[in-house]
């Protein structure tokens, strides 16, 4: 079935052709390969992205809660302030002062708890993403070894993984941000009623969403680069003989 004659004939006619002295991986080709890797390993990509999605969703829910609390607290203090003057309820100065201080204390306490939650969620996010990136690189050692046998330079491998990770990280961050935000918003609406929505600081919310996207991408890249570089630097023989 193998048609050797044709091959030899073609080789002979190619003989005069000048041989290019370059090794390249053009960006469009790199993009094509990386995107195909994501779309064809959808299951694997989904698991990797889930790490990002969960981390960012957690982060986003904490931030959404912060904005919602901000809005409801304003409402409470307004209620306290206006309640005295407008209604005929008898409240002496001492009571009013006490209510104001508790509000303040709750406010600072809430802020401290929130920043603690943000730090925690970042950690969860970072560990989750690092873990899934590490896995997805490790299980492809063989493939990396093969590519190096075919003439890929270390940078090509790193480039492919960078594109892949950036895409996964960005998509995961978008989904995670929307998910975390929407869920927390629904919970808030159930707790405080629809009236809370227009009172929220949406400008601040957008800034938080932007941050969440940025953090998702940055953590993904930071998590994926070291294993990718390590894999790329392995001698092909070692990469090829890895059993996963």
């Amino acid at each position: 079935m193998i048609d050797v004659d044709r091959l030899l004939a073609a080789n002979k006619s190619d003989h005069g052709e000048e041989i290019r002295r370059q090794i390249v991986l053009p960006w469009p080709q790199a993009f094509r390969i990386a995107i195909r890797n994501v779309t064809l390993r959808l299951g694997r990509a989904a698991i990797t992205a889930t790490g990002v999605i969960l981390g960012i969703a957690f982060l986003m829910s904490v931030w959404t809660q912060a904005v919602v609390e901000e809005a409801t607290q304003d409402e409470q203090s307004i209620a306290i302030a206006t309640g005295v003057g407008a209604s005929e309820t008898v409240l002496d100065d001492e009571d009013l002062g006490a209510a104001a201080t508790t509000g303040d204390e709750e406010h600072t306490e809430g802020a401290a708890r929130r920043s603690w939650l943000v730090v925690m969620s970042l950690l969860v996010c970072g560990v989750g993403i690092t873990n899934s990136m590490l896995m997805s690189v490790t299980e492809r050692f063989r493939e990396i070894g093969t590519m190096k046998c075919l003439g890929a330079m270390d940078e090509f491998i790193v480039r492919l993984f960078l594109i892949e990770t950036a895409v996964l990280g960005f998509l995961g961050a978008i989904v995670g941000a929307i998910l975390g935000h929407v869920i927390m918003l629904l919970v808030s609406i159930i707790r405080f009623g629809v009236s809370v929505v227009p009172k929220m600081d949406w400008g601040q919310m957008l800034i938080y969403i932007g941050f969440a996207l940025l953090i998702g991408c940055v953590i993904s890249l930071v998590a994926a680069v070291p294993p990718a570089v390590r894999a790329a630097r392995m001698p092909p023989a070692a990469a090829l003989s890895t059993e996963v």
């Binding site: 090794i23 390993r41 063989r142 003439g151 890929a152």
Partner: peptide, 28 residues
């Protein structure tokens, strides 16, 4: 040119893409 016992094709690429990969690197 390397030929392996275990073939070592890139699993996510088609036959044609596998064969053209070294040519991409060679700048064809």
């Amino acid at each position: 040119g390397y030929i392996f016992q275990t073939f070592n094709l890139i699993p996510v690429m088609t036959a044609l893409e596998n064969v053209t990969l070294p040519m991409i690197f060679a700048g064809m």
